[in-house]
Design a protein around this nucleic acid. Sequence first.
DNA 1: ATGGTAGTCGCACTA
Length: 268
Amino acid sequence: MDFKIATWNINSVRLRINQVERLLAEEKPDVLCLQEIKCINDAFPWKEIRKAGYEHIAVHGQKGYHGVATLSRIPFKKTESRDFCKKGDCRHIATDLDIPGGLRIHNFYVPAGGDEPDPAINEKFAHKLAFLREMTDLYAKQRSKSKNRMVLVGDLNIAPLENDVWSHKQLLKVVSHTPIEVELMNELYASHDWVDVMRRFVPEDEKLYSWWSYRAKDWEAADRGRRLDHIWVTPALADAPVAMKVRKDARGWERASDHAPVIATLRL
DNA sequence: ATGGTAGTCGCACTA
């Protein structure tokens, strides 16, 4: 089967429920992973999502900030979330799809890390680094299971490659592209031999972004983007990716999120 | 070197 998965930092699912419905109607993914839903589970638009044909919904939300949700046309066998750094933040939810051979989907919202890229004076940056180290430890421990089929998606808040940002030089001291973050991301990447699905389709010498700041006067003209959102798969799925796209047009929708949806198709 | 925007919640915080 061709399995289509999308990831999107929606920056308030209640405010942009119409855009979620539009994306689901246009792309018909099997699974949509949302980040920054910014609401508690009770305030999540369950009815609208179900009406759109997504009856299997795993929500891990908190009041006002963060929060993740995985919407699926395929039933779940199991759902669990991990409280990284034990802060009580809702930044992760894992769902096991009930399909032959199984498929585990990790939906992440990694801390943004604040402005100052020094963990000694910026707690938020320290939190981001600790979060990444905890992810790496976790996947390194599960390495024996790397034959399992897993997809890791989400807003990882790091643009690792030179062409994942509009200016490598100018962003070296900007949180999301600093050497320490890139190094930790590379360690995480190596911890489970993850495959970077997006870069399977766009060579490393070409620019590739999924986020454009709200603060630019004209985001499209300036095109000062970053690739903060990612889709990774385990080695068991190394040959599975058959298509990938960034729905950049959605960044131009009225009252858009600052992130564009990233979508991949896997041949299972 | 700086300030620019958005969302939630309630007049501060996170991004």
